[in-house]
Design a protein around this nucleic acid. Sequence first.
DNA 1: CGCGTTCAATTTGTCCGACATATCGAAAGT
DNA 2: ACTTTCGATATGTCGGACAAATTGAACGCG
Lengths: 259, 259
Amino acid sequence: MSDKLNAPGLAFDTQAAPEKRKNESIADWLGRQIVSGVYGCGDPIPKEMDFLAQTGISRGAYREALRRLAGKGMLVTRTRSGTRVTPRESWSLLDPDVVRWSFESGAPPDWYIRALYEMRAMIEPPAAAFAAERRTEADLQLFRDALQAMRYCEMTEDSWHQADASFHRAILISSHNPVLLSLESGICAAVAYTTAFRYRDMPNPHTRNPVDEHAAVFERIEARDPVGARRLMSELVDTALLDSKGTTVFDLGLPTLKV
Amino acid sequence: MSDKLNAPGLAFDTQAAPEKRKNESIADWLGRQIVSGVYGCGDPIPKEMDFLAQTGISRGAYREALRRLAGKGMLVTRTRSGTRVTPRESWSLLDPDVVRWSFESGAPPDWYIRALYEMRAMIEPPAAAFAAERRTEADLQLFRDALQAMRYCEMTEDSWHQADASFHRAILISSHNPVLLSLESGICAAVAYTTAFRYRDMPNPHTRNPVDEHAAVFERIEARDPVGARRLMSELVDTALLDSKGTTVFDLGLPTLKV
DNA sequence: CGCGTTCAATTTGTCCGACATATCGAAAGT
DNA sequence: ACTTTCGATATGTCGGACAAATTGAACGCG
């Protein structure tokens, strides 16, 4: 059963990982391995001595990497039994690292992209409503900067995705809900990776720059109109969702939620 | 500036921490210290050698504990600078450990309780709508068990809070959104701790058992009525929010969001 | 005096080796 | 057939040593 572990595939070469600390790059590598399904639910992780023997990495660095992943609920360790992968529902699927690993290691599964869009559809409209009630003048400037960057960048550029993420980050910041803000890294990573993923694999870039829709949301937030901001934001997310994969995969669920 | 660190308050006695592994209990203890504000944003954590000297814990165990917290975004380490606490917005405030630490170490601040309620008001109504569309027969049994337990327990009992949490857990499970389900631990911890916190500090327990409201939500989910489930769930959360601290603190934001 | 350079101290990062502890599984005993 | 004992094995903890990086002060120079 453990042939997969001792297989030559245990080559740890820190692929595309410019991390300085070894325990960090090990955690990155192992995190990618896990989210990409190399180790399924309940599967055992390489034993400390095996990993040490095959990679030359010291035991301490490997153990610290395991603790990073254990803190995200991805691993459980028991003496003698070894360290095993926990079922997906106990992971922190909105953790920015988990989102990054999922998109860095090949194409993430459809259910994950879909679930991330659904989360955005749940969170961002009410967040926009809170933002309309609580935004400060300093918050408004964040929106203006993001919108200006979106106008002056082509959608194919990487900088456009950054500007898009900045806009959605401004929403969460302006909501002035600390717990919501703590989801910022994960949400923005999801926004950036899903949009980049969409435009990379869509052969027909008929989609136009949605900067006007974003500006409309901002205008409602500036006007302190929670209801309007919520509605426009809901439309914005729904549009992105419908654009992403066609209506065949994503057509259930969200439309019936529009109020 | 570092007088607080070398102070005698560094007594690590694993208070009320029946953990077996030392690195785990250290992470618990340090996590409570951080969320309770002993170490503010940007403050330095005890140096490894200091901690070793004052507690007798080995350096490796302490470092593994730090990695656990670093995985939750609560710490950043830099050579020579030391290890410092990151600003709150970069923490995983919905992480079940963070929620537990916040409520275990004295009364959490009002803004945190309020933010948790707002998150529930954002997440649970749409989750109930998804549940109404996607629930299976097995899911329905989870609701029935939770409701029966709520009926046969007094609200003052601890078992009632468990049943309440089980009901809300059933909502997230029935939504069949993996990312939403990954928030289960944190949400349910928030539900359990906030309700327990409310009934412990409320001198006037005029609040009655809200089992009927919960049953109404279940009935709409069983009938596959997303709109109705969403509306009733929204009312349920709003009621809990208004009950918790009176309308003076929580009266802005949520009511205007009701559709 | 202002400014960049060099250098040494300090703190985290990594490695190594050893023992402690818990747990599983097989073997022995009843 | 059941229980107990015991050894093997993997994680948990400890201690010491050195490497790497960064800070801050001393130094030299224009």
